[in-house]
Simulated scan of single mutants.
Amino acid sequence: MAPKPRGEWSTVLSHLALGVVSLHAAVSSVQSSRGAAAGFLLQALAAATTLVPGLGTHEDCLAGAWVATVIGLPLLAFDFHWVNGDRSSANLLLGGGMVLAVAGDHLGPEGCSVAGQAVLLVVAVTILIVAVFTGNTYGMWGGAMLGAAGLLSRLEEDRLLLLPKEDICRWALAAGSWAYCWALHTQRLQWE
């Protein structure tokens, strides 16, 4: 009986952390980067739907997480690429996310899971590449944490470090979002 309450509390705390970090990042980046702010806001809303009782069914929460992944994360990477002049990669990431969002009903649960993890890893790798070439330390940490969340979600185990795997992934996403918010701020300061 003891592991169940720990899992419930860790789930609530991980959703709360991701929601608060994402909402803060959305508010702090809205003036400089509306695309990234929209991506952060999608993450915050997806996390909030699971925290408010009676707000939606389990399927609605999964749909919100799907949208936050396939549209929200490419929006975050879009601005990072756009400011650095890599407009083709920015458009490709965002366009690919939009196509996946539309095709989500036809993929099935396993297909959606694999596509979401692929989007997370592609966004993490592209952010990491741009951050390395521009010397943006926060971007490197953000890309590494987003990548860690993507890789952890592919593991077969249900629990990591005595916590549910999904909670650890949300903590990694929250840390990545926090670092990425600072990366955007640092990037804007470099280009001004």
Results as ranks from 00 to 15, higher is better:
residue 17 A to C: 09
residue 189 L to P: 12
residue 125 V to M: 13
residue 120 L to K: 02
residue 165 K to D: 10
residue 183 A to H: 00
residue 166 E to W: 13
residue 11 T to N: 12
residue 28 S to L: 14
residue 152 L to E: 11
residue 77 A to D: 03
residue 157 E to H: 15
residue 37 A to H: 03
residue 108 G to V: 05
residue 165 K to H: 10
residue 78 F to S: 01
residue 2 A to M: 14
residue 33 S to R: 11
residue 165 K to A: 06
residue 66 W to I: 01
residue 11 T to L: 08
residue 83 V to G: 06
residue 164 P to Q: 02
residue 110 E to N: 06
residue 3 P to H: 07
residue 187 Q to K: 04
residue 39 G to N: 01
residue 88 S to V: 14
residue 56 G to Y: 02
residue 71 I to S: 02
residue 23 L to V: 05
residue 162 L to F: 14
residue 46 A to F: 00
residue 87 R to Q: 08
residue 178 W to I: 07
residue 54 G to W: 03
residue 18 L to S: 05
residue 13 L to H: 11
residue 145 M to H: 03
residue 152 L to V: 15
residue 100 L to T: 00
residue 107 L to V: 02
residue 32 S to I: 13
residue 147 G to S: 06
residue 4 K to N: 13
residue 174 A to I: 03
residue 14 S to E: 04
residue 115 A to F: 08
residue 190 Q to P: 09
residue 122 V to A: 11
residue 131 A to M: 02
residue 139 G to Q: 00
residue 179 A to N: 02
residue 87 R to K: 11
residue 90 A to T: 00
residue 189 L to K: 14
residue 158 D to S: 11
residue 147 G to W: 03
residue 82 W to H: 04
residue 83 V to C: 07
residue 140 M to E: 10
residue 15 H to P: 06
residue 184 L to P: 02
residue 137 T to E: 12
residue 40 F to M: 06
residue 80 F to T: 05
residue 155 L to C: 08
residue 166 E to K: 15
residue 97 G to V: 00
residue 114 V to Q: 15
residue 49 T to Y: 09
residue 77 A to P: 01
residue 16 L to V: 08
residue 88 S to R: 15
residue 37 A to N: 02
residue 92 L to I: 11
residue 78 F to C: 01
residue 96 G to T: 12
residue 128 L to K: 05
residue 169 C to A: 11
residue 183 A to Q: 00
residue 135 G to K: 00
residue 135 G to I: 04
residue 162 L to I: 14
residue 117 Q to K: 10
residue 12 V to T: 13
residue 143 G to N: 01
residue 96 G to Y: 12
residue 187 Q to P: 04
residue 178 W to V: 09
residue 102 V to W: 08
residue 80 F to Y: 12
residue 108 G to C: 06
residue 98 M to S: 03
residue 2 A to C: 15
residue 94 L to D: 00
residue 187 Q to L: 07
residue 30 V to A: 13
residue 50 T to G: 15
residue 80 F to E: 06
residue 108 G to A: 05
residue 165 K to C: 05
residue 145 M to C: 09
residue 170 R to P: 01
residue 159 R to G: 09
residue 148 A to C: 07
residue 74 P to G: 02
residue 33 S to H: 12
residue 58 H to N: 13
residue 178 W to A: 08
residue 5 P to S: 14
residue 105 D to A: 08
residue 131 A to E: 00
residue 174 A to R: 02
residue 71 I to G: 02
residue 75 L to I: 01
residue 65 A to M: 04
residue 151 L to N: 11
residue 115 A to D: 12
residue 154 R to D: 05
residue 45 L to Y: 06
residue 136 N to L: 08
residue 150 G to S: 04
residue 73 L to C: 04
residue 55 L to D: 07
residue 112 C to F: 12
residue 5 P to R: 09
residue 54 G to F: 05
residue 32 S to Q: 15
residue 152 L to Q: 11
residue 178 W to C: 08
residue 58 H to K: 13
